[in-house]
Structures are given as C-alpha cells and as structure tokens.
Design a protein around this nucleic acid. Sequence first.
RNA 1: GGGCUCGUGGUCUAGCUGGUUAUGACGUCGCCUUGACAUGGCGGAGGUCCUGAGUUCGAAUCUCAGCGAGCCCA
Length: 863
Amino acid sequence: MSPSHQLPKNYDIEEVETRWQSTWRDEENYFDPVSSKPQFIIDTPPPYPTGNFHIGNALNWCYIDFIARYKRMRGYNVMFPQGWDCHGLPTEVKVEETHGITKNDVPREKFREMCRDLTLTNIEKMRATMRRLGFSTDWSHEYITMLPDYYRKTQASFLQMLKAGDIYQSEHPVNFCTRCETAIAFAEVNYAPRTTKLNYFDFDGVEIATTRPELLAACVAVAVHPDDERYRGMKGKRLTVPIFGHDVPIIEDVAVDPEFGSGAVMICTFGDKTDVYWWKQHSLDLRKAIDRQGVMTATAAPYEGMTSEACRKAILADMEESGILKRQEELEQRVGTCWRCKTPIEILSERQWFVRVHRDDIMDAARRVSWTPEHMFTRMENWAESMEWDWCVSRQRIFATPIPVWFCTACGEMVIPAEEDLPIDPTVDKPKAPCPKCGGSEFTGEKDVLDTWMDSSISALHVTGWDGTGKPPYFPAQLRPQGHDIIRTWAFYTILRAKALVGSHPWDEILVNGMVLGEDGFKMSKSRNNIIAPEEIVGQYGADALRQWGAGGAATGSDIMFSWNDVVAASRFQTKLWNIFRFVMGHLEKGADPEAPVTELTDRWLFVRLSETVAEVTAAMEGYQFDRALRAIREFAWNTLADDYIEIAKGRLYTDDSSRDSACSALRTTMDVLCRLLAPIIPHFAEECYHNLAGRSVHAEAWPDFSYTDDEARRHGDLLVKTIAELRRYKHDKGMALNAPLGHVMIYAPEPVDDAGDAGRALNADAHWSTGTPRLEEVVSGVDFNMAVIGPTLRKQARGFMQAVEALPPELLKNPPATVTVDGEEIPVPPASFTPKVAYRVAGEEVDVLTLGDVVVTIGHQP
RNA sequence: GGGCUCGUGGUCUAGCUGGUUAUGACGUCGCCUUGACAUGGCGGAGGUCCUGAGUUCGAAUCUCAGCGAGCCCA
C-alpha cells in the first residue's frame, strides 16, 4: 500500500529543484523601499567575474542566503543585492590572450570595450550557477562596477575625498609590479619563500653583504649599528661605490642588525621597505636604477638596458673579475610578489595618488562593528597597526575607473569636473570651463586609473542608497558577509571609506567565513587537481544537498573541507525526510479532523521535543551557527520524529480510535513547523513538502513561533521511549524480530502513565503500566553519585564522602542516614546526592526483569 | 621572528561559561526485507580527548610550556 496516493515514491531532486526555480519569481525577493518592516541590508561581496562561481563563493552565498531567507521569515525587509567587481588586471590579461594583442595595440576605449564584453559574458555564466543554487538574490539591486551608473559614484567618492584632503598625489616609493607595469598597494603584496645568494664584497674597504647587487648603482649610503665596535668612528665618512664611483656617506641607525651579514648594509633606492625607512629618516639622495619595466636605467650605465636579472649576473661577474667579490652564502628569504601574477615586486619612487590612512579613526569604526567570529577583529587590528604608508590608489592600467582630473597644460593647475558631469574619462572628455588659474584651455587628462578596491570599497554606501553625496538613506547596512582572506582589503578599505565619506561605520555586523579546502585538506588548486565545481555537486545531488554541506560541514567561520560524504549524507537525509513526509501525508489523506486537539501522551511528548527544537534552531540561526541549526533539525527529524515517535505512534494511526486524530494533528503541526525550519537551508525541499501540506509557499510564511510546555508529557514520554528502546534491545538480544509478539509485559513506574496503548502496539505485546511494586526480590548492587550536587557542596570532602557512602550497608543506601562519618567527622548527607543501584531477582514467577533507573519491567515468557 | 586559529575512535566532526556511559557522520561487524523508508531499522566493536606540568574534590574543557598543522603578517 502506498503511504500517500498523491506523492511519488522517490524524491526527484533535479525535477523538484528546477520546477521550483522556474516557479519562484524574482519580485518575491525584492527589497521594499517603502516598507514599514525593519530593514536588513546585506552588503554582499561583489565577486570578480571570472566566469566561474567557485565553491568558495558557493559557501559564502549559502551563508548569505540562509540569513536572507531566515530574516525575511522573521519579518525583516531584506536586501540581498548582487554586485560584480569588474575592473582589474586578470580581465585585461585574458583579453590580451584571447585577442592575441597587448593593451597598447588598440585604442584605450577599444580595449575597455573588449574587457566589458568579456566581463558581461562571464557575469551571465555566474548568474546561471547562482540561480541553480537557489539563492534568493534581489536582482533588482544588482550592480556592475564597470558601468557608468556605478563608477560615477566611485569618481564622486574620489573627488569628495580629494576635496577633503584625504586623497593627495605625491612622489613616494610604492610597490610596483614590473610585469603588470603598475603600482600596487601593500594589501596586494604577497610574500613567497625563495632561496637566494647573499653576496659579500669589498665596498671601498668595508665588507658589505647584499642580496641585490644589481642595485649597487642605486646605493645612497652605507649603514651600521651605532653600538657596533667594528665600525666605531666611521660615521660621516664617505665611501666610493665600486664600479660606479659615486660617493656615499656612512650613517648609523639602530635598525641595522649587526648579526646579519657583515653588520654593514648598503642602502639603495629601493631594495626593500627598510631602505625606504632609512631613506626617509636620514634624508638620503634618490637614485633610480630600475624603471617601470624592470629595466636598468642610465643611472646604472654601463648596465643600462639590461633586465635587473641580467644586470645582477653581469655585476657579480664583474665583481668577481676585479676581485672584490669575496664569498657567497645561500639565504632563505621571503620576497614580496604581486598577488595577481606572482612577479617579485620592486619598490620604485613614483608620482602616485594616495588615500590617507587615519588608523585611529578606522579602528574606532571597526570597534563599533560586531565581529563574528570575534577573533577576526584581531586580524583587522594587526593589519591596521602594521600600515606604514598610505594607500596607493593609482594604477597604470586601462580597464578601471578613470581618475577624474585634468591638468592645465599652461600652468599645471589641477582641474576637476562638477559632480553632475560625472562620470568622465579625462583622456577623452574635456573640462567645461577654462583653467580657473590662468584661463588656459589646453588640458592633459590624468591617465592613471583607480585601484579596483576603490570601486568595491563603496559597496556598503551603494547598497544603502548613496547617490554620491551626503549620508545614504538606508545607511548603515546591517551585515557584511565575507571571507577572512580579504579582511585587510575589502573590510579595511570599506571601513576607511565609510568613515571618510559618511563619518561612521558601514555595517552593524560582519560575519567572516572560512575558506573551502579540497577533500585532501589542502587549498583547492589546479596543480593539486582537487577542485570541485558547484555544478558537479548540483548535477549529482542537487542544490539542497550542497547547501546542507555548507551549513553543516563546519562551524561558521572556520575553514571547511569539501567532502562528498557530507553531500551524500545530506541527500540521504532528504530521502529520509521525504519518506517521513509521504507517511504523514498518507495518514492525513485517509481523513483526520484538522481541528482535533492533541491529547495523547506520545503526541504531547512530540510537541515538547518540537518546541525545544524550535528554540534551539532559532537561537542557532540568530547567532549564524548554521551547523548547530542543521544538527538540531536532523536530530529531531531523524531520531525523535522518525525513529522514536513514528515507531511508537504508528500502531495508533492504523486504528479507527479517536486517539488517531490526536496523532494526525500532532504530525500535521510537526511537519508544518519542520518545513519552516528547513526553508532557509533547503528551500526547494521545504517548498515541495509545504506546498503539498498547506497549498502555499513556505517562503512567504513566518518563522515558526511554536512553544509548548508539558512537564508530565516530557517525563512520561521520555519514560515510554526509554522503556520501548530497552525492550527492543531485549528482543534483539533474544534474537527476536522487532515485531515479534511478546508476552505479558508489566511496566512498573513511579507515576501512573497513560500511553493510550502505544507501548503495547509498538512492542506487539500485552503491555500494562502500573505504579505497584513487582513482587520481586530487590538487591542493592551499588550506588550512583550525583557529582553536580556532591562536588560543589562538599568540595574537598567529596572523595571521602563517596567512600563513606559506598561503605554503607544496602538498606541505608535505600534510606539514607542524615549524616555519615568522614575522617572521624560527622557530615550531613546532601539531599539527592546519590541513588542506590537496584537489581531485581525473580521470586518464583517465570519472568525476565529489566530495570532502567526507577522503572522495572517484567516480561512473561509466553504470550 | 610576531599574531591568530586548531590538534577528540580508521577518516571528518560536536562538545561555548570544568562534573563520572565523550556527540554525530562516513567506514567496519552482527541481526532484521516489521503495513514511510534496505538511500532503511536495531545492536556491537573501535578513543592515551597531541605531549608534559599546573589549578581543582574533579580537566577533552581553565593556565603554562613543548611538539605538530593551517592562515595572516614582518
């Protein structure tokens, strides 16, 4: 017999999920600008449109979607926008590759157009994946940073900060990638280990150790530690630089490490960050030996025109030949590299644009944000404390937001556009008025463009309705979800910009998610061949299974290993739920009074458990602990509902008894609540069930407000479940089938229990409850201590007390004395500090006896 | 070198403010085709809770040190 006449036996994941995805309407997820509900705006991460929505994105978006759906059910006016952070080098590189050109082969605007075309194609691919994962995105709040509507705001934000003095241009050493031919920010520098040679050579009589001999031409001083006896009295002397012949001073500085190399270091402009520090501290000269392409300049003649690599070899060869190279040592070092292309960065002094970093302001704002997990705040703090230079925001690239300024050709005055004229491209557009200083009409547009983080760091302003000035109408956003890998960039810069432009923190809360690792425990990468694409998972097990993996795979915030096991377990859970649901629907279809009250013990017990589950899941969702939420739901559905409740109440459902209606009501309510609890995590499955149950969409329903207390039902129900479990074990141990008939069963409990016959039907036995005492011989076999009472009450005497109690004669264990003797001292026996363990012996009758706590069960041998 | 996180049966994992059968999943072994489900049910085996010291009547849980892993930064 089919349990339900309406529902198919198998849950067809692909069919159900795609059916609902084509049924749901985008409008259902739109933020309502005139709603009276409290707002919940999520400042979602705008991914880089690579064309692949990878599994790390998927995890992040699962979290966001759980929250968005949950908050909607809790009555919030939710905004779940979708941005695309388009600008940047990878797209330029891809375009160059695909078209077989370099950026300078075509006009700038043509190149940008190619980049835009590629980006739009990629966005389309990623949108498709996102839809298949069932995210409740508000597509009416999509933003694309490369389009005029958005980069107009980026330019407006630039001008506002420029006018406020928070942006300035200056010649200053910057990190420079010679392959990308652009300046980059510290946040874009990664450090990679590498083995290099430390070269010792004779520098006009002083031994110097350096890893960068090619920078000899850029040497501007030699530094030693002031306490270093070897160089006592050398300060102020001048040395002649080998090969190049210019003079440099000897200086003293405590930052020199006397233990490293020879204790004397040559300062070049610039070998590393420390050189910049010394250069500033001691007002040294500037000698540029390497240019933007990484090629030696005229300063480095006769090595001019060589790459720095070739120059290094040539200089070392020349040093060796002239006998000044003394020896070389292997050295492990960590070298700064460009995060996009892995090329070692150079530090070049360049005219660039900078954003002022007001560290204390930023940290004040960061402290007003609630961080989950809390320790992620420390990362922000550490990063802010280590910032030494301002944020370099200019880039010498093409596909990016143009810096909207011109310079007067005649007098050099900087001219900026009016806000209403934005967006502009200063290399194409012209100022509308002559130069205010000299009246000149010839201008040069700024060719530099902005760091892409200048685009994405105003996302919080954009989604809260910013139009380029003033305070956004919905500011601040409620939540920023993001990965911990971009705390030093996106989170840091967003706080910086919100503080600078609006004067306050951008969001109330930030939820930081972990990284997804491959099944082997390592970061997913092509070289390890451990990449799993979301499409692969969805194709086999569906979006809901992937979402369950995201919810349950790890505690929110910690890194999560991908595991096919978890996905399979997730899909099995859905199968189990589907069978539960079919079973329930089958019984509801057979007819049941929907208004019938829930009266029977087992049914009321189920409600108690359901009520506890709702409380637990709600608390977990409030704290973004999706793993706890899912675990509580699974535990309830699989163990409490399926294994315990249904197995016990099943027999009653097949009767015509009036108590059947009570069970049907309990099941109807339970399925209703369960669907709502599941809705944020597995929206397709929950929708399919709920529609069959209630004929409406579960996603338009409120979060369940189910609260039920019934102490008696809880006590008696627990007793019933425990007793039946024990009798199942009894049958199992006897080698009986679980549905095999059992003889006369008497359950002696301390309180009268009315189970409506459930125990008898579940056990296929003639079962009766009694408060009497079985006529059995009772034997005290030991004692159970209640440490939660004994520990705090007796402290150091606890051990002695327990020994004293164990020594008591059996009859005193059943009727405890007022005091016991511990170390010769009479101490009072705390109430409820122990209970005797009681065993029962058969007294004449041929019965088996089971004891569980204070319940005794006797089982007759034959029916 | 500094900071952060973590170290629990074969594998992955829960265990937040300390309390005596340490959770679950996968795997494994045995029994059961019971009127929702064999993608199932019931039961079992399997753990020095990384190591050492300390605090405590009591430590997987708190403190310190060590070892190891990952991430971030110098």
